[in-house]
Write a protein that binds this DNA or RNA. Structure first.
Lengths: 359, 359
DNA sequence: CTGAAAGCGCTTACAG
DNA sequence: CTGAAAGCGCTTACAG
């Protein structure tokens, strides 16, 4: 019986190793690596790493040498190796409720172009206005060691909040503002904007102004708060004038809600739709039903989406600065990721009342 | 003078090592690793790796043991480590021309949900209909060792094509079909669809049918080809009836082009807009100008986008199966990534003529 | 069916 | 300002 403790062939392997580089088990990838660049430039790999990233002082001549070698060899850093070694990727995760609302598309386009020029990738996650789905996405993205998060709004699960806090990954919240320690946001007061557009309808001598809302997410509810405030201040608030539907906002839904409203409330003389797609549907339904806008009913929307200026009649609305919010959010996040000092924790970009013919 | 060759303190470090685990230079990450799970389950790390991935046969009991340990410890695999070791990430890059056309948003939503349930991440790149931009994105994504590519259409730079071919990364082309070896696509014949909607206008007794196109990308040109074919077959083709504008498609542009067209061509009795947003703008402009649709001019669009069914009058159009294309493309790519046999290299999902009141 | 060793391509932490 | 060594957390390629 051969002893299981018989000497292993290891010593000979060591002898081979002593003779030069071991060549067994090579996992050739064909990729140009930092080592290749280092060899070509005649420096050590760490110097290449530092020269290319510019994180630490490297002799200017060496930097040039390294850059030349890297360019010549067509070197492209490996993000996976980088992420593994440094424990942080170059990926920023952006979480939005929906892609079918052009509002968020504008936001994303701005974010993506700003982050891309700074060398970051963007991972887009769609939460469908669902806090549980958001939590799931957060968990999955956290495994990728994102460099930062760009989130929409503030209402998320307790677990999501803890996940974010514990991870230490910098995050910026878009579209709303909230003053709280270690909380960064770029947006505007949804409530103030809701109040402003309601006040505009009031200034047009309207007394029976309805609020039509769909989706009913946090931001819609804040606009509703603004509407209530304005109506109460005018002494005209009537809970019966609120038509709230949790379904997804769309042109078709706007048309349906408009018809429902005018069939049940014959005295209405103004409508504030919480989003432009609803308002567009309302305008088209009014046209079909022969309801004159703004003479019989003044109509206002929110967000100033594509097509609102072409409606019959052109829609009065609140223009939100999505592109600006996207850019500012990305820039703020960039600073946080680089651990640079940040002046404001809540940037208010404001909004704009756009008066057209519908109100 | 102390000798520079004095014995280093290393031996003592080695003695320490002999007494247990070396603890110098630990880079604590706090992360639960494969090793932790292996220790808890009482197996080797490779067994954990195999048990969790299900790639190779592992004893059923061991698998359960490992899964229990992983769950208990809250183990989440590290994608960066995985990508580095296996030379392939779990990321699929999706390249679309634009996000502001809901067509592509529908496509992305379908793709993302299909891929996510299969454990893949989606990286979305926007090319802005620019082949150079696409090439840049391709290069940057290739560095991430994507598991697969989902591309829009077929017209890209020569360099992009070579990049793709050399990378060996599987790719599926969406929205069009092309029969070529090692080329996978899910879409429909843009030309046939363009011909079909033109034929529909012809069936409505229209003789002076204009084609209004914007963007003028490959797919729009194919629809134009279909229009020309139908008009020629009917003996009614007139190059003067084509209004082509390279700017980005929008409702506003559609309105402007409609007005330009009717001001210069008083005999037109039908218009095929290459995209629904243009057609919607045209319909709204017709309303403003008092041009009756379809009595005076029949109007048709393409894609069946949101709002087309609410237009005054509802728009006749071609419904494209974006969600189906997205799902089928993702499923096809999934098979290619798993190196499973693939039956068809070009899946035609067809299209649908939706007749409403505008034509 | 299971495992010990090596390696993927970088960066960190020290040291000088 | 520059570098040698170790390590990030996995999987591949062998071996049994």
């Amino acid at each position: 019986m051969p002893s299981p403790k018989a000497p292993k062939p290891k010593p000979s392997a060591r002898q081979q190793a002593a003779g030069g580089k071991r060549v067994d088990r090579p996992r050739a990838t064909g990729r140009v690596t930092l080592n290749d660049v280092a060899a070509a430039a005649g420096v050590s790999p760490i110097t290449v790493s530092r020269a290319l990233r510019g994180t630490r002082a490297v002799d200017a001549d060496l930097v040039k040498q390294v850059e030349r070698a890297a360019r010549k060899l067509g070197y492209v850093p490996d993000p996976a190796a980088r992420a593994l070694a440094s424990q942080v990727s170059n990926t920023v995760a952006v979480l939005v409720p929906l892609l079918s609302n052009t509002l968020f598309v504008d936001l994303i386009e701005a974010v993506q172009s700003t982050l891309m020029s700074a060398g970051y990738q963007t991972l887009i996650g769609v939460t469908h206005y669902n806090a549980e789905e958001e939590e799931r996405l957060l968990r999955s993205y956290l495994a990728h060691r994102p460099a930062g998060f760009l989130l929409t709004g503030f209402d998320r699960t307790r677990a999501s909040q803890q996940l974010l806090a514990r991870s230490g990954v910098p995050a910026v919240h878009m579209m709303e503002n909230l003053l709280a320690p270690d909380t960064y946001s770029v947006g505007f007061s949804q409530q103030a904007a809701g109040e402003a557009i309601t006040n505009h309808l009031l200034s047009r001598k309207r007394k029976r102004i309805a609020f039509v809302g769909a989706q009913l997410d946090a931001r819609v509810r804040q606009r509703l708060d603004g509407y209530r405030l304005a109506m109460r201040k005018a002494g005209l608030y009537d809970a019966d004038l609120e038509l709230l539907d949790p379904s997804r906002s769309s042109i078709g839904l706007g048309a349906a809600l408009f018809e429902k409203l005018i069939d049940t409330h014959r005295d209405i003389d103004g409508i504030f739709f919480c989003n432009d797609d609803l308002a567009q549907g309302g305008l088209l339904a009014a046209l079909r039903r022969g309801v004159r806008v703004p003479q019989k009913i003044a109509v206002a929307g929110f967000n100033d989406l594509a097509g609102s200026d072409q409606m019959p009649p052109p829609l009065t609305t609140i223009r939100t600065r999505r592109t600006e919010i996207g850019m500012e959010s990305a820039n703020l996040l960039l600073k946080l990721m680089r651990r640079e000092p940040v002046p404001n924790t809540a940037i208010d970009v404001g909004y704009e009342l756009v008066v057209r013919e519908s109100a």
